[in-house]
Amino acid sequence: MTLLQISNLQKYYKDVNAVDSISFDVKKGEVFGLLGPNGAGKSTTISMISTLIKPTSGQITYNGESILENPKAIQQKLGVVPQEIALYPSLSGYENLKFWGHSYGLRGNELKNRIAEVAEIIGLKDRLKKKIEKYSGGMKRRINIGAALLHKPELLIMDEPTVGIDPQSRNHILETVLELNKQGMTIIYTSHYMEEVEFLCSRISIMDKGEIIASGTQEELIEIVKGQKKINLKFDRITKELTEKINSISYVQNIDTQDEEMVLATQNGDNIFKDLISKVSETDSNILSIDIKKPNLEAVFLHLTGRALRD
């Protein structure tokens, strides 16, 4: 059953086309991923779905009802975890949760009990007394998520919820997302971390420069690059000559370089190692490491845009 339908959504900021006629739908009970590099238009899309900004054109319906005409149709049922920490720094974790619960209509014991439940979910039980400004980055992220869960939203939108946190908190957040989804919550998860989207999402749309460049399940997306390999190479130095030599290998389809690293998208070639080493030996550069990966969403993005999916 389709819970959220996005049709030809567009957002212009003066001359900048931040979101360019995108369409996708989110089904009830799934974790839907929006994958793309920074500046791809993910947050603008999320802001339009959450009624924060109005689209230039297009339509968004929730349960069949237009949220552009009636924002209330989604606001009470929606939980939003913004990319930035959106909490009151001078208030404690408990006071913050109390306010956000109150703003969604929770009162008295119901609010109190729900704060306790959410504290348990985000792993901060008995640690809500400190002021937000005294929490670590990871703990702030967890409270930031908790604030969106108090009213048990039907649809939870998480916009890059793991940016800038420690691995432990990141794992906890990913496990929490899966657990919430198991309990029946529909989730839209945006990230530029391919591993997170692969780990969590059943269906994915890949965004770049305001457009959706591919959509489908992970398997469907990887099918696009079937027969391809993604090779990560690290050199002591990357020169123009080196790039030209590698580019001359017939089955190299894309080269993306950053600092001393090079990411190649290649069609399967029998002599790939031999050819690479031969070409590199003709230059002054030396290979420090080679990492060949199975086709994944990163390879899909590289294949479709010619660029790696980096920060």
């Binding site: 924060l52 939003v80 920490i85 959106a86 909490l87 009151y88 720094p89 209509g105």
Partner: peptide, 13 residues
């Protein structure tokens, strides 16, 4: 600046 303004705006208030 704290992004709470935007968060309140997407709430039912």
């Amino acid at each position: 600046k704290n992004n709470t303004w935007q968060r309140v705006l997407v709430s039912p208030i």
